[in-house]
Amino acid sequence: MEIRWYIGLAVALFSIGVMGVLTRRNAIIVFMCIELMLNAVNLLLVAFSKMHALSPVGLTNPSVVSNAQIFVFFIMVVAAAEVAVGLAIIVMMYRNTHVVDINFLNRLKN
């Protein structure tokens, strides 16, 4: 498949994520949208890595290609850890306020 389909998909996913973060008020959905953006970037990284693998540079240096593939796993692991922390924060927030509406959380204003 050509690289542009991957780019298009990644852009679509990223835009959905941005729009979700900007428009939704439910903290969990905002959180999911952030993950979506993250994964859009991940996807792009893998796609470009694959693209490079077929290029002359990639053919002579296979390690460069596999680096990106492995790097993505690291990002996923870190993202998983981040999700654990983020969800914990949301749970604590719910316990204290009984809402998960981010517009309600404006105590830092001014």
């Binding site: 900007l22 959380l105 001014n110």
Partner: peptide
């Protein structure tokens, strides 16, 4: 300038974007 600190996460994100 302090008025920019609205406390609304949406705003912050929008500005960031």
């Amino acid at each position: 300038i302090r008025l920019l600190q609205s406390g609304q996460i949406g705003n912050y994100v929008l500005l960031m974007v």
